[in-house]
């Protein structure tokens, strides 16, 4: 039972991160019908920027509790600029091209970003500085630390905030209108290009936060970290129903739980044949299972017609 609770906590932490990243995939897909495979790299850039800023600020003697929000804001600003640029440079010229073109371009952007990051930050793992005394708490036999509590609460707050933007503001209304019918949205006076840019920037801001969360939780950042994380978050978005915001959140949390419960019990399930290092396969089992049995995802309705 302790293992169970522990894996639930781990799953919720990891799932929160997946959910934030999955939202970026799903928002862009909802509005453009495009899978932005470079999104995982935006998470990585966010983590790297935050880490660099944090290390520098702490080096200059800035107190950790001030350095952390400042670096987060810098990383968010950097990623928003990056997301804006990616759309502007790589996707916008291909807006009316056959679907394969932007998809291949997305993979290209992803490779470019990885290599740029490698040139800037090198191939080595960067350690996340010890900021606070990260205390552990015992809950029903399981352990959760301060960073994990902050991750879960922040992620939930961000998701609620995003839903409020999308459903309660005129910008959100315009985003939904553009997602549904770009011509009709233009006829309402909506600057479609602007709304698309804002969508990329919102997704990228969430990606930056997710990047900081991952590196704080694992204490590490690396130029290659965006690849697997991006694929898993994409899986989460597909699991929930790509294009559907609630689906991305649900899919993210579920995938986190599936992975961590899977990792916790895989040894028992296979009689010790496979160990928890196989946890990554669960995400892809899930992806395949969803694509085979329910391609529209748990809450989605239109993958089949659009992808």
């Amino acid at each position: 039972m302790e293992i169970f609770f522990q894996q639930i906590i781990n799953g919720l932490v990891q799932g929160s991160v997946y959910a934030l990243v999955a939202l970026g995939y799903t928002m862009v897909y909802g509005i453009l019908g495009l899978i932005n495979f470079a999104h995982g790299e935006v998470v990585m850039v966010g983590a790297m920027l935050a880490l660099s800023a944090l290390t520098a600020l702490i080096g200059w003697g800035v107190p950790p509790l001030l350095a952390l929000p400042v670096s987060l804001l810098l990383a968010m600003a950097g990623c928003m600029l990056l997301g804006f640029g990616i759309e502007r440079i790589a996707y916008r010229p291909l807006r009316h091209a056959p679907r394969l073109a932007p998809l291949i371009t997305a993979i290209g952007v992803s490779i470019v970003l990885q290599n740029l990051a490698m040139m800037i930050w090198g191939r080595e793992y960067h350690a996340f500085p010890q900021l606070i005394n990260n205390q552990s708490h015992h809950v029903g036999g399981a352990i959760i630390n301060d960073i994990q509590i902050v991750i879960i609460i922040t992620a939930l707050g961000l998701m609620a905030g995003l839903m409020a933007i999308v459903h309660r503001t005129s910008l959100g209304c315009a985003m939904r209108a553009v997602a549904e019918n770009q011509h009709a949205a233009q006829l309402m006076g909506v600057d479609v290009n602007r709304v698309i840019s804002v969508t990329f920037m919102l997704g990228s801001a969430l990606a930056a936060i997710a990047g900081l969360m991952v590196s704080a939780n694992y204490g590490l950042a690396h130029y290659y970290m965006g690849f697997l994380l991006g694929l898993k978050a994409f899986t989460a978005a597909v699991l929930g129903g790509i294009g559907n915001l609630r689906g991305a959140m649900l899919g993210g949390l579920l995938l986190g739980l599936i992975e961590s419960l899977g990792a916790g019990y895989i040894g028992d399930l296979t009689g010790g044949f496979l160990g928890s290092q196989y946890q990554d396969v669960f995400a892809f089992f899930v992806l395949i299972a969803v694509l085979v049995f329910r391609p529209s995802g748990l809450l989605g309705e239109r993958l089949a017609e659009r992808a």
Partner: peptide, 24 residues
């Protein structure tokens, strides 16, 4: 312009559609 086929936003509520009309 009220376009051919109307172009209402099916996934927005009636009130939201009207507010979109006043977007500018």
């Amino acid at each position: 312009l009220v376009p051919e086929g109307r172009g209402v936003f099916a996934r927005l509520t009636v009130a939201e559609n009207l507010l979109m009309g006043a977007y500018s």
